[in-house]
């Protein structure tokens, strides 16, 4: 029983971080219809930026995170402007190839700037443990869950209440009609990439706290695909539930079966869910009126 509770808590905490990592992917797909294969590398860049600002520049961690967020906005807008905008209106497969190329470039850039040695994120996130009977809960997991909850809630409110959030969903639905409401589709696209980069800084930092600052973060990018496909490519609640499912599956498999199966099981479940619900659990079903 203790094992089960322990695994559940760890799984949910990891799930929250995964959901946050997946958020940027969902944002970009929702607003621009682009499947961004470089999301994992966004996380990597975010983690390294924070590490670099704290360790190499010597900023206080709050300032470092703020600086990394600013850098993310700039990077997001630049990538949209220079890489994605020329591809507007092109074949989706071509756009996907471009994002794969972008992933390679970002990864290479990170290695050129910061090398390939894994780093440790300085311990600004609390790292003690809470004890509940026999169960120990690491404080950093609790912290990660809280941050993830706040950021995800903020994005949900943004999409349903704010003028630009609604405009972003409108653009996702029908670009010509959105233009006719006076919405600048170009600006919305730039905003989506900037927000995705911002969420990647936060997600990447939380991930780096669990795994260390290294290329492993990109591998987790692969898990992000499982998360968003289970949840539905364009759904924020889907990303949260998908994150929890993948996180729990990994922990249960690792705890009860082991043998590295936790790398495989999430993807097997992914295939099963897609067989039953092709749009993912919460994906937008194409509306067809009869």
């Amino acid at each position: 029983m203790t094992t089960f509770v322990q695994l559940t808590i760890t799984g949910l905490a990891n799930g929250a971080v995964l959901a946050l990592a997946a958020l940027g992917f969902v944002l970009i797909f929702k607003a621009t219809g682009v499947i961004n294969f470089a999301q994992g590398d966004f996380l990597l860049v975010g983690a390294f930026a924070v590490w670099s600002f704290v360790v190499q520049v010597g900023l206080h961690w709050t300032v470092a995170v703020a600086a990394a967020l600013v850098l993310a906005v700039v990077l997001g807008v630049l990538i949209e402007r220079l890489v994605l905008r020329p591809m507007i209106g092109e074949d989706p497969v071509a756009v996907i190839m471009v994002t794969i190329g972008l992933a390679a470039v970002l990864q290479a850039a990170v290695q050129m700037i910061w090398g390939v040695t894994p780093r440790r994120l300085p311990e600004f996130i609390p790292h003690g443990v809470f004890r509940l009977g026999d169960v120990t809960i690491p404080q950093d997991r609790v912290f990660a869950v809280l941050i993830a909850a706040v950021v995800l809630a903020a994005f949900s409110v943004f999409f349903t209440r704010s003028r630009h959030g609604i405009a972003m969903r409108a653009v996702a639905d029908d670009q010509q009609a959105a233009l006719l409401q006076g919405i600048s589709v170009r600006r919305i696209f730039a905003m989506a990439w900037a927000l995705a980069a911002v969420s990647a800084v936060i997600g990447g930092t939380l991930l780096a706290n669990l795994t260390g600052v290294s290329g492993t973060i990109t591998e987790i990018g692969l898990l992000v695909f499982a998360v968003v496909i289970v949840g539905g490519l364009d759904s924020i609640p889907g990303a949260i539930v998908g994150g929890a499912i993948v996180g729990l599956l990994q922990q249960y498999t690792a705890g009860y079966i082991g043998g590295g199966l936790q790398q495989v099981v999430p993807f097997v479940v992914l295939v099963l869910i897609l067989l039953v619900r092709p749009y993912g659990l919460f994906g937008e079903v194409r509306i067809e009126r009869v």
């Binding site: 409108a170 010509q176 919405i183």
Partner: peptide
């Protein structure tokens, strides 16, 4: 060309 996945109210806000 209404925004199909948005509610009526959200369409008006857009």
């Amino acid at each position: 060309h209404v925004f199909e996945h948005l509610t009526v109210h959200e369409n008006l806000m857009a």
